[in-house]
Simulated assay, not measured.
Amino acid sequence: MSITELPVRAADGHETDLSDYAGQVLLVVNTASKCGFTPQYAELEALYRAHKDQGFAVLGFPCNQFGGQEPGDAAEIANFCSLTYDVTFPVFAKIDVNGADAAPLFEHLKQEAPGLLGSKAIKWNFTKFLVDRSGKVVDRYAPTTAPRDIEADIEKLL
C-alpha cells in the first residue's frame, strides 16, 4: 500500500487520505505546541516555502502523547501554528503515534524506518520521516535533528 492511500484525519476531523500528495517528496512530523522542540515549526515552514513549488510538502500531525505537550483542540492548534509561526503547510487532526490507537500512517512509517537499534516506538515530539516521490519511506530523523539539517536529503529527492 502506498503511503498516500493510508487513512488520515484532516484538521476538521473528516476521514481522508494523502492522495493529494502523491508524487511529492514529503516530510511527515509529529508536532506539539508546548514542547522544547516547538520552535522547529519555523524551520519546517521555511523548508516548505523554499521547496513547495518543486513538489515538496511538510505534513504536521499534532500529538499529545509526550508530556501532554499538545493539549489544545484543532482550532487552538491551528491558531497557535498560524499566529506563532505563520505555518502554511498542512496540519492534520491530533493523533496517537504509539500504542493501540496509533494512526495507521505512523504505524507504517515506524515499520518502514525503525529508530535507533531497530526500535519502532516514537520517542518524542518532532520525530521526522522523509518520504520520496514514490511513497517510499527514505529516512527517520530524531526530534533533536533540526529541519535545516535535513534540507540536503530533501533536495536529493526533488
Rank of each mutant, 00 (worst) to 15 (best):
Y141N: 11
A102D: 04
D12R: 01
I154N: 05
L130W: 01
I95R: 00
D12A: 01
W124C: 08
E45C: 06
H14Y: 15
D132M: 03
D20W: 11
A74K: 03
A146F: 14
L157M: 04
A46P: 10
V137R: 01
V87W: 00
A74I: 00
S19G: 14
N64P: 06
A22G: 12
A100H: 11
I95L: 06
P39W: 05
L105I: 13
S119R: 14
S134W: 00
K120F: 04
L18M: 09
F106N: 09
L27F: 03
A142D: 14
I154G: 12
G55R: 05
F106W: 00
Q69E: 12
E112C: 10
A103C: 13
K94T: 05
T16F: 14
L109S: 00
D101W: 05
R133N: 04
P71S: 00
G13D: 07
D17V: 11
I154F: 00
E70T: 08
I150L: 09
E5S: 08
P147S: 12
D53G: 08
A113I: 06
Q24E: 15
S82T: 15
T127N: 08
D132F: 02
K156Q: 01
Y141C: 03
F56K: 05
G68K: 00
A103S: 15
G60A: 13
T31S: 13
Y85W: 03
F37S: 07
G36E: 14
G67I: 04
F89K: 04
E70G: 09
A103E: 13
F66A: 12
N30H: 02
T84M: 04
I154D: 07
